[in-house]
Simulated scan of single mutants.
Amino acid sequence: MQRFLSAALILAFSLAAGHAGAQAPAKRLLRIHTAGPADLGVDNTFLATEFANMVNAASPSLEVKVFPNSQLGQSREVIEAMRLGSGAAGTTGGAAEYASFVKRVGVLGLPFVWTSYEHALKVLDGPVGQQLSADMEKGGFKVLSWGVSWGYRNVITAKKEVKQAADLKGLKIRTIPTKVFVSAINAMGANATPMNFGEIYTSLQGGVLDGYEHTAATTLSFKLNEVSCCMAMTRHLMDPVVLALSMSEWRKLSAAEQAVVTKAADDAGRKVRALAAVREAESLAAVKKLGMKVNDIDIAPLQKAALKAQDDLAKDFGAEALLKQIRAQ
């Protein structure tokens, strides 16, 4: 009798354990790459983190984990792997990072193309954004959210103070290694120096660079103010931020999971958009407080010089019609 009871208890425990296991299957892990730092001071890390928190709170079957500071590799290599269906599930970062794989997306990063945050959002939420999302999907990427960067990109220098557009001539300025960014810097009269982001600090220290171009928020997050003296408010680029998954990962999700992911991306994207102007103002105030000189300069000569670069690049991207729509809005 005792042996029978023991056997019955063992069977009961086994069934209970099996039932519990059936109710709690392993969650699917979605790894999100960003080149941003491990703090919420920049748009791409904030977007990735908010998205992850929202999905993790709402989905019983998904876990999103953010890998900041390029832990999964440099953005180009990560995106290439995504296109082939491996590596990270998705990324947050500048749209220009995708231009090497989806050519027409490069139109979003053209120099001096945006007149305001509102202008950019109107374009991204309209026919241009819809066409580029379709292009991305054909290229192997699912756009979940378009947003705006927390600040326009400006030229920051290590030693030379730029007080007018002519002062940029000949300066070695680091930029993202893409055709759009290189053309933008060269159009301003500087010498574009493509370089991975992680090399900027030591290159400024060693005199390899005269400066770099980026936002005030990024300058603070990576402590680049420690090796820089001055910021010229060129406002030459505002590369929209995008949250995208690989199509291979997107197709693996159930309809319910896709709904959770889509809502989380929409909600996180709205937060990023709402904070753009606020965070830019805060960051500019902070770099001034740390002792950097921030100079407003007349950018009219730079805007005029950029028009040819806009036209040439748009033609190269096959995006002349898109540029026409952007200029018209």
Rank of each mutant, 00 (worst) to 15 (best):
K122R: 12
D296T: 15
V241G: 06
T262P: 00
R327I: 02
A216Y: 11
F141A: 00
N295K: 14
N56W: 08
V113W: 04
S59K: 08
L243V: 02
R273C: 00
E199L: 15
K138G: 00
A166H: 13
I185A: 07
S248R: 04
A120F: 03
T49A: 04
V66D: 09
N154G: 12
D298P: 13
C229M: 13
A305R: 06
R104P: 14
S75E: 15
N186M: 08
P240W: 05
T178P: 00
I32F: 09
A16Y: 14
E249C: 01
L40I: 12
P68R: 07
P301Y: 07
V55S: 05
C229R: 11
Q2G: 12
I326G: 03
V287A: 05
P301R: 07
E199T: 15
G129A: 05
A264L: 00
R31E: 06
A300P: 05
E257I: 00
R153S: 11
A184P: 08
I297D: 07
E280N: 09
A38C: 04
A321T: 14
G87T: 06
Q303C: 02
A58E: 09
E80C: 03
D135K: 01
V64E: 00
S116G: 12
A277S: 11
V180W: 04
V180T: 14
L284G: 07
K163F: 06
R174N: 13
Q164D: 14
F46I: 03
V261I: 01
A58S: 12
A265S: 03
G198Y: 05
K315Y: 02
E320S: 14
V272Q: 05
A187Q: 01
G36D: 11
G94Q: 12
R279V: 03
A165P: 12
R83E: 01
I10Q: 09
L62S: 04
I185Q: 07
A216R: 07
T45A: 07
V155E: 09
L307N: 01
K169A: 15
F197Q: 15
K288D: 10
E257N: 00
T91R: 02
G73V: 12
I299P: 03
M247I: 08
I176Y: 14
V113R: 13
E320Y: 01
R3P: 01
V294R: 07
A52V: 01
Q258G: 00
A319Q: 05
Q310C: 05
A244N: 00
F4S: 09
L284A: 05
